[in-house]
Design a protein around this nucleic acid. Structure first.
Length: 840
RNA sequence: GCCGGAGUGGUGGAAUUGGUAUACAUGUACGACUCAAAAUCGUAUGGCGCAAGCCUUGUGGGUUCAAGUCCCACCUCCGGCACCA
């Protein structure tokens, strides 16, 4: 037989599959369905990354397995093509983004096809295609109609390089997530989507989806649900009677609130102006705080600063004491109500502030048995030392003494205790536990229990060219008027200049003939909205379009979406936890509310792949020049080798280093499978041992694929191939089983050898091999013999040997006699099928 | 600071969830084949020791007949969040 020629084989079968439309899925409602999804790539100019291949191969394996298990499988592909890199490239070269996108998607398509993924190419979509973004705009109109899209003047993060506003999620470490450019705060009119209205559902419904835990906790932390109380404090001054609502998670400490703090942006401050005697000072502080970025405010080693509002004060509703009011930038305007009650004895930040400004510290919680302490600024007892005092049995007298001393410190207000406990100095609530007191105190002072979220509304407008135009028309008479549905899509006009402007206006605003339109309502003079949508828009619903990608009348036909949704298994990167994944859950829930989709969650199951790092362990990046080019690997070693290597290289959900040396192993494995074909014979005898190995491999490979343990699945196939190689003759049927198992990993070589085995129909249509549990079992058990916990020997027994018999054998083993030195064993433990443990 | 995840041979990694640690691969050494090389095949390969044996899963304790796996404390690395009241 000739040598394994990957090039010839891969080209041959790719052509054949294309011709046969082998992986096309039909909206066949009689068959059980399986929807497998990977994040559709952004077609960057750099071409496909080896990281894409990891995720795609994994889902490809699962999709192929499901097809062979009888499912109607949808495994689609498309392009998330709007976005800044393309636009920036357009500015640099003067070529239209449409043209650049076309070129890049052509490259990606060629590369993906060369890897033999079983995508249904007839469903290919592109977010920049007007027939696609028509529906992105349609969803926006629905959001607008339902009062979930609004425009607001607000300070936003402005990227100086990209010259556009960014969503909060897009600012990472003070810089723009995309370009790494500097971000400044600008006051601008922006479109926002009310994702906060869905915060609770986005949070709670994580309970009913099968996502990996890290994604769930990532989203939970980002949404940041916290339960507490909203309590009203009266504000008094000369000729002033007002009030401020504060939010707290610790209403049980209300009696310890010794001052009030307002955020610098707190709007009501202005109305107190005439009552504040030191207004000049206050105003200056506010002005300075506002000019600082969030990050600056939190940096500066958490130094607290603030200014007292002289002339006004608040009344603590619990004990009616008059307490001072401060404005301080450690309170954030956008969280809670923008105002807090400060309880220095039981909040670390308040404690530091109170010490600095000499404010009273009033202890209201006695820790008693609770000793989880943190952030304690007492020199003698730092946080980490205190953390040790949590389990009495682990520590001796010294700690017990310390604990007592510590409680004294806390009760005397000498250090700050943030945990819960029993109430002291709290009127009628003395002696209650924190938990009990929370609701009771809130009720007593007329407050209400409230849930607050960290999540903020989604800043949805970008002042750039290469995005979906927001389909709104501004009319002086009628206000904001949605573009009528029948006029969708609002097409991106052709422009000469893609360059964004420093003034913060989209490049679209320069095109008068596009901007000036008649108002759809009054036909008067009006102007189009010139902001575009962020690149997250198109990707928020693309899985839905795949179900019926060519539908011109609706975003997807009802039958198609009811049949295919939800996505059964979605694999992607961890970097999208709080971006795409959260956004699309939000849109989906909205679409569910307006009865477009049949379920309220888009993805039933979400898994994540680890990153592929450069050989030195750093991130692959073009600037470092350590990017692995898949084309070159495919050319030299073949797509099958690359696929097998990427599955074998390490645990799928963890990041792994690319090691060029190790690819050879995957190639050698395929060559071995190729060579074994020569040894196959129809009449060859299948030994019991080989048969057992075969069944064990079918079992292991199948189970491992389901759990995305692809590395051990490949290893199992290697072990089987090694066993075959040792044989003189390999039964053809056994060899074909190996090919059937290998097919999802290395589809080309498996198909070629399958054909050489005289099969007429594709291996990819072959039912998934099944195994017989009985046949996976060894016919002899090796039982280890331990003496005092150390393995000293082993015995071989038939699988049906009784416990007594095995113990007897173990005890009479020469090694046993040697190590027990004739002493009578105190205990003999038998672990079925594993070992005998003898204790002397 | 908080929340995730990880730490096992020269290297990537296995280990049926408490039961013979180092599967599979890679690298290295030696051997076979060869005029030679490549490829392939075979043998060896955690450490110490001539050996019997002892030690070994980041460190230190603990539970257990038995710990990579469970408990406690600590160290290091990666990722996310971070004045969120």
């Amino acid at each position: 037989m000739e040598q394994y020629n990957h090039k010839k084989i891969e080209e041959k079968w790719q052509k054949q599959w294309e011709k046969d439309n082998a992986f096309r899925s039909y909206n066949d409602t009689d068959k059980k369905k399986f929807y497998a999804l990977i994040e559709f790539p952004y077609p960057s100019g750099d071409g496909l990354h080896v990281g894409h291949i990891r995720s795609n191969t994994a889902m490809d394996i699962i999709a192929r397995k499901r097809r062979r298990e009888g499912y109607n499988v949808l495994y689609p592909i498309g392009w998330d093509a709007f976005g800044l890199p393309t636009e920036n490239f357009a500015i640099k070269t003067g070529r239209p983004p449409q043209e650049i996108t076309k070129k890049n998607t052509d490259t990606f398509r060629r590369q993906l096809k060369a890897l033999g993924f079983s995508f249904d190419w007839t469903r290919e979509i592109n977010t920049t295609d007007p027939s696609y973004y028509k529906w992105t705009q349609w969803i926006f109109l629905k959001l607008f109609e339902n009062d979930l899209a609004y425009k607001k003047k607000m300070p936003i993060n402005w990227c100086l390089d990209c010259k556009t506003g960014l969503a909060n999620e897009e600012v990472v470490d003070e810089v723009c997530e995309r370009c790494g450019g500097e971000v400044e705060i600008r006051e601008k009119e922006q479109w926002l989507l009310k994702i906060t209205k869905y915060a609770e559902r986005l949070y709670d419904d994580l309970g009913k989806v099968d996502y990996i835990e890290s994604v769930k906790t990532g989203q939970r932390n980002w949404i940041g649900k916290s339960e507490g109380a909203q309590i009203e404090f009266k504000i008094i001054g000369r000729e002033l009677e007002s009030s401020v609502n504060i939010f707290t998670t610790r209403p049980d400490t209300l009696f310890g609130a010794t001052y009030l703090v307002l955020a610098p942006e707190y709007p009501e401050i202005l109305s107190y102006q005439s009552h504040i005697s030191n207004w000049g000072e206050v105003e200056a502080y506010i002005k300075e705080a506002k000019s600082k970025k969030d990050i600056e405010r939190t940096a500066e080693s958490r130094e607290k600063s603030g200014v007292a509002l002289k002339g006004v004060s608040a009344i603590n509703p619990a004990n009616k004491e008059e307490i001072p009011i401060f404005v301080a930038d450690y309170v954030l305007a956008h969280y809670g109500t923008g105002a807090i009650m400060a309880v220095p004895a039981h909040d670390a930040r308040d404690y530091i502030f109170a010490q600095k400004y000499n404010l009273p510290i009033k202890v209201v919680i006695d820790p008693r048995e609770y000793f989880f302490l943190k952030d304690v600024p007492d020199d003698s007892l730092t946080g980490s030392k205190l953390a040790k005092i949590d389990k009495e049995e682990n520590f001796g007298e010294a700690v017990k003494k310390n604990k007592k001393r510590l409680r004294d410190l806390i009760l005397n207000g000498k250090c700050c205790y943030t945990g819960e406990g029993h109430l002291v100095s709290s009127g009628e609530f003395i002696g209650m536990t924190s938990e009990e007191a929370k609701e009771k105190i809130t009720k007593k002072v007329g407050g209400k229990m409230k849930t607050t979220f960290k999540l903020r509304d989604w800043i949805f407008s970008r002042q750039r060219y290469w995005g979906e135009p927001i389909p709104i028309i501004h009319c002086e008479k009628c206000g904001m008027v949605p573009v009528p549905e029948k006029e969708l899509p609002v097409l991106l006009p052709e422009v000469k200049q893609y360059k964004p402007t420093d003034t913060g206006e989209s490049p679209l605003s320069a095109i008068d003939e596009w901007v000036n339109v008649a108002c759809p309502q009054c036909s008067g003079e009006a102007k189009r909205e010139t902001d575009t949508m962020p690149n997250w828009a198109g990707s928020s619903w693309y899985y839905l379009r795949y179900t019926d990608p060519h539908n011109a009348d609706v975003l997807a036909g009802k039958e198609a979406r009811n049949y295919w949704l939800p996505v059964d298994w979605y694999n992607g990167g961890m970097e999208h936890t709080t971006l795409h994944l959260l956004y699309s859950r939000f849109w989906h829930k909205f679409l569910y509310d307006i009865s477009v989709v049949p379920h309220d969650e888009p993805y039933a199951k979400r898994t994540a792949h680890g990153m592929i790092l450069a050989p030195d362990g750093s991130k692959m990046s073009k600037s470092k020049g350590n990017v692995i080019n898949p084309d070159e690997v495919v050319e030299r070693l073949g797509a099958d080798t690359l696929r097998v290597y990427e599955m074998f290289m390490g645990q799928f959900n963890e990041s792994v280093r690319w090691q060029t040396d190790n690819i050879a192993g995957s190639r050698r494995f395929l060559e071995k499978v190729w060579r074994i074909f020569e040894k196959t014979s129809e009449g060859a005898w299948l030994s019991a041992e080989l048969e057992r190995k075969l069944h064990q491999t079918i079992k292991k490979a199948g189970e491992d694929i389901e759990q995305m343990r692809f590395n051990t699945a490949v290893s199992a196939l290697m072990i089987l191939a090694n066993a075959f190689e040792k044989e003189k003759e390999v039964p053809l049927s056994a060899y074909k089983t190996l090919l059937a198992l290998l097919a999802p990993f290395a589809p080309h070589i498996a198909e070629e050898l399958w054909e050489r085995c005289d099969e007429k129909v594709s291996v990819h249509g072959e039912p998934w091999p099944s195994y017989d549990e009985e046949k996976t079992k060894e016919d002899e058990l090796t039982i280890a013999v331990q003496i005092n916990g150390k393995v000293r020997g082993e015995i071989t027994v038939p699988p049906d040997a009784g416990e007594e018999e095995i113990k007897k054998q173990a005890l009479s083993l020469p090694a046993t006699l040697k190590w027990t030195e004739g002493k009578t064993p105190a205990n003999v433990i038998y672990v079925p099928g594993r070992l005998v443990s003898i204790v002397v």
